[in-house]
Amino acid sequence: MIADFIKGKRILLAALISGIAIAAIYAGLQYLIPDTQLYMLTGLLVAWLTGLLLLMWRELHVHIRKQTLERHRWQEAWDGIRDILTFYHPLPPSTTFTIAPDAALYLLRHIMKQQPRLIVELGGGLSTILMAKLIKSKGFDTRIITIESDAVYGEALRKELQQHGVEDLTDLRICPIEPTSLGTWYSIAGNMPKDIDLLLIDGPPKAVAKDSRYPAFPFFEKYLSADASVIADDADRPDMLRTISRWQQKYTQWNTEWVRLSRTIAVFRRG
């Protein structure tokens, strides 16, 4: 939403600069060309500027409308989350890096339906807290392993889990980003438990490396249970579209479902 606001201000600034530039050009041309030609040129410039302003206004309107719809969708999602969970402490603030509320609601409903016994999450945060609270409130026999690359962020997340009384339900592992045989990725030491029922891919950040989340499937595929689901967040990002395409080409036994939310997620299940 902040990005849309900034982009909208840039559109208005571009229109203002264009108007000033055209006015300056027009003022200079008055001394260089005859009046008749100047009138014709003035008409063309006015028509061009009017079209430019209308185009910019339309783009700004689209961004504002998109922002409003997204805010409304997120509010509905939070209402749905609060119908499922009760919060006694404030949650960490939402950012562009945290899971979107509508994706979080989808995740909670998926867990309630499937009741996975083992969840592995790449990239912790708000989703970790919500999943752990759901497991505790419903009494599910479910374990969560969260892989986080940043030690400082991981410690902050651990304190959040403590505050919400769910630290014991989450095995939070700090795995720095390092060169591995699969690429620049989490330095996961040793083997993971087998029979993972849900793999949530929401890390590492895309700034780490090109297609930074690609190694998730090659690494974890052998640990997934027969009925496992894999949920990839931010699936409509260009880097994730490339990554998912590579997964689909290599792991043909897995079917892909695209869930269109404020940020698209991809859900994989064996065919």
Rank of each mutant, 00 (worst) to 15 (best):
I81R: 08
R82H: 15
I84W: 05
L85Y: 10
T86K: 15
Y88T: 15
L91N: 09
L91H: 10
P92S: 11
S94T: 15
S94N: 14
T95H: 02
T95G: 05
I99D: 02
A100P: 00
P101H: 07
A103M: 13
A103V: 11
L107C: 01
L108V: 03
M112F: 01
M112T: 11
P116T: 04
R117F: 00
R117V: 00
L118R: 15
I119R: 00
G123E: 04
G123Y: 06
G125T: 09
L126Q: 07
L126P: 03
S127L: 12
S127W: 07
L130S: 02
L134P: 05
I135G: 12
K136N: 11
K138T: 08
R143A: 13
R143H: 11
D150E: 08
A151K: 12
A151I: 14
V152D: 14
V152W: 10
Y153K: 10
R158C: 03
E160L: 06
Q162N: 12
Q162I: 10
H164Q: 13
G165M: 05
G165T: 05
G165E: 06
E167C: 08
D168Y: 11
D171I: 03
D171C: 07
L172D: 07
L172G: 03
L172R: 12
R173K: 14
R173S: 06
I174Q: 02
I174S: 04
P176N: 08
P176Q: 12
P176W: 06
E178M: 13
E178T: 14
T180H: 08
T184I: 10
T184M: 09
W185V: 02
I188N: 03
L198H: 12
L199T: 03
L199S: 07
G203V: 02
P204L: 00
P204T: 01
P205Y: 00
K206D: 11
A207V: 13
V208F: 04
K210G: 09
K210R: 13
D211A: 14
D211H: 12
S212C: 12
Y214S: 09
P218N: 08
E221S: 12
S225I: 00
